Amino acid sequence: MYTISEIAKVVDISAHTLRYYEKEGIIDPIRNESGIRQFDEQHVQWLKFVKKLRETQMPVSQIKEYTRLFLEGEHTASARFRLIEDHQQYIRDQIDILLTTDEMLTKKVATYKELMQKSLS
């Protein structure tokens, strides 16, 4: 079991973010008899997944919706599938944009290098 500060380090997110996720219903920590939050390995895996979703710009509202659907049970699998599939397409679209932008910038860099070489001559 992890305390809030321990799991924050393991997952590399702030304790403040963990409290926010709890408030939003994205995570439901175990409470010991003293009311102190505790987290297990399932929480670690879930938070790593949530962190990746946030890193790839999934809005908290969609993560909340995914969480709600997950907690409702297996009959929501198709809705969860669509949500994740849509996000995957968003990521792929962003990758395409980044790749074409990188190509454009590579050409610009080459142009400037050539220009600077000529000015040194």
Rank of each mutant, 00 (worst) to 15 (best):
I36V: 15
T56Q: 01
T3K: 09
M58A: 07
Y112M: 05
E103S: 12
F81I: 00
I27D: 01
A79Y: 03
E33D: 14
M104D: 10
K113Y: 00
P59Y: 06
H87I: 05
M58K: 09
K107L: 11
F81K: 09
K9A: 12
H43A: 10
L120N: 11
T101R: 13
A110T: 11
K9W: 00
M1R: 11
S78C: 02
I91G: 06
F81Q: 07
T101D: 12
E103F: 06
S121W: 02
K107R: 13
F49G: 10
M116G: 01
Q117S: 15
L98D: 00
D86P: 00
L99H: 11
E85G: 01
M1W: 08
V11Y: 07
A110D: 10
I27P: 03
I84A: 06
L53K: 04
S5F: 04
K48W: 00
D102I: 14
T100A: 09
I26Y: 03
A77L: 11
F70G: 09
I26T: 02
I84R: 05
M58W: 01
V50K: 11
L53A: 07
R54S: 09
R19L: 00
S5Q: 12
A110N: 10
S61A: 15
I84D: 04
H87Y: 01
H87G: 06
E55K: 15
E74P: 09
H16K: 15
R80V: 01
I95L: 08
K48H: 04
S14E: 14
I91M: 08
S14M: 13
I26W: 03
Y21N: 14
Y66Q: 01
L99G: 01
Y90M: 10
Y112N: 05
E65A: 09
Q62R: 05
K108E: 13
R37T: 10
K52S: 08
K23M: 14
D86S: 06
G25Q: 04
I95S: 02
N32R: 03
A77T: 06
L83V: 01
Y112Q: 07
I63K: 10
H16A: 15
R54F: 07
K107H: 11
A15N: 11
E65M: 09
D102Y: 03
Q57K: 13
G25F: 03
E65G: 02
R80M: 01
Q42C: 06
E41I: 14
I97H: 15
Q42H: 10
A8M: 02
I95F: 01
H75W: 02
R37K: 15
G73W: 04
E22G: 13
L47K: 04
F49I: 08
D93C: 08
M116W: 05
G73N: 05
T100G: 04
L115Y: 14
L71S: 08
K51P: 08
Q117C: 09
I63E: 12
F39D: 02
L120H: 06
T3M: 04
A8G: 03
E24N: 02
R19I: 02
G73I: 10
Q42K: 13
H16Q: 15
I4P: 02
K48N: 09
R54N: 03
R37D: 11
L105Q: 11
M104R: 13
K23E: 14
T67V: 08
Q62N: 10
R19E: 00
T111W: 12
L105D: 08
D28H: 13
I36L: 13
H43I: 10
R82P: 00
I63Q: 08
S5H: 05
P59K: 14
K51F: 12
I27C: 09
Q88W: 05
